[in-house]
Design a binder for these strands. Structure first.
Lengths: 196, 196
DNA sequence: CGCCGAGTTGAACTGAATCAAGAAACGTGG
DNA sequence: CCACGTTTCTTGATTCAGTTCAACTCGGCG
């Protein structure tokens, strides 16, 4: 029997028997999205969180000038959700899109409540996930406020070396808040420095 | 009997009897900080969250070039904590400072656990606070990625009109990620537009 | 009264965007 | 497996938003 990565993810983080978990996670709603397919788009209220079992997705916005801005990449074992929409029932302003063929678990509020009930440790774990996300966002704000393009890129390379290899360079640029041309020049400059 | 604003804040949000709450919150650790006094500084592990009962505090970093960058303002009824430090027990990289004479409640992990135990609704409320902070941070990242200085300023004015009047302009600039001179020019330009 | 930090203004400068063109990589159908 | 069109990446010339530095004004406070 093949084990779902959502199951093993929860098992290893919740410190409980695999059997207890898989009973709950096996018949979760799952869906496979093709490359470039949208999981979600602005205007709707997003009713669930996505857990990536295989593949890679991104969350992004499009500004009035038509430019894309990437809020988050999510490879295997990451959650993505528009908290604003899921939790506060407001129409989202963000897109969520598969960047590769991607299999996700669809998690709704009800499933979370079931998990909390059956596995008390889940509440604490979920809490930890939220704290972790806040920490990352806070550090990202700080970086956007304080660092130039080159430093932001170097930080990205260090933090997400895997993502770097899986997405087109222009999307890294969009995540960093610079243009594709700008990132191309940053990389050129770094290569020059490394030679000498 | 004078009621603490922390008590009434929890009472109104938790939907429980004021008496139940005040028994818990009355003898919390409280402290008053003078204007400009530091509540906390980098390098230490921050062991508690602050709830502002009266006054105004800010969280900020100082970059290698010596420039300040404000992560958050917190007026009355706001929480401030360095999640990275409190939750993950890591040395913080941020300062927390009183911008006016400020009274705060010091909340440690133990107190949170007591609250969770005695008042079940607190867990959900805390969860809501976390989601709310994520939402705000996410929107701020999006704004930093997509908007020019003028739009960021206008958004700030709309979202925090109260804070705008209580802090020096150079701190608003620091929050927005521009220089004091830059903000001065943005405001001048806006004034010009409004006249015509 | 004199000082000091906050805000303003101007001139020169700089990091990054824009626009445009070409080169390289990629995917798809024949 | 190649040929083609499409997208991605690079490079150059120009422009622009915002910084830096310096001088000056203003208001509060010892």
């Amino acid at each position: 029997m093949k084990e779902f990565s959502f199951t093993s993810f929860l098992t290893s983080n919740l410190n409980v028997e695999a059997n207890d978990i898989s009973a709950l996670t096996e018949d979760c709603n799952r869906r496979v999205y093709k490359k470039d397919e949208l999981l979600f788009q602005p205007g709707m209220v997003c009713s669930h969180t996505f857990f990536v079992e295989k593949g890679l997705i991104r969350q992004y916005s499009i500004d009035p000038a038509g430019k894309e801005h990437i809020l988050q990449f999510a490879p295997e074992n990451w959650f993505v959700s528009d908290r604003e929409s899921v939790y506060f029932n407001q129409p989202s302003q963000y897109f969520i899109q598969a960047l590769e063929e991607t299999q996700v678990v669809l998690i709704d509020e009800e499933f979370i409540r079931v998990l909390e009930k059956k596995i008390p440790a889940f509440r604490d774990f979920n809490n930890r996930l939220l704290h972790n996300q806040i920490r990352h966002l806070q550090n990202r704000v700080n970086l956007l406020l304080s660092a130039l393009a080159e430093d932001r890129y170097l930080t990205f390379v260090k933090m997400y070396p895997d993502v770097l290899l899986r997405v087109p360079q222009k999307m890294v640029a969009s995540y960093l808040g610079i243009t594709p041309e700008g990132l191309s020049r940053v990389r050129k400059e770094l290569a020059r420095k490394n030679k000498q």
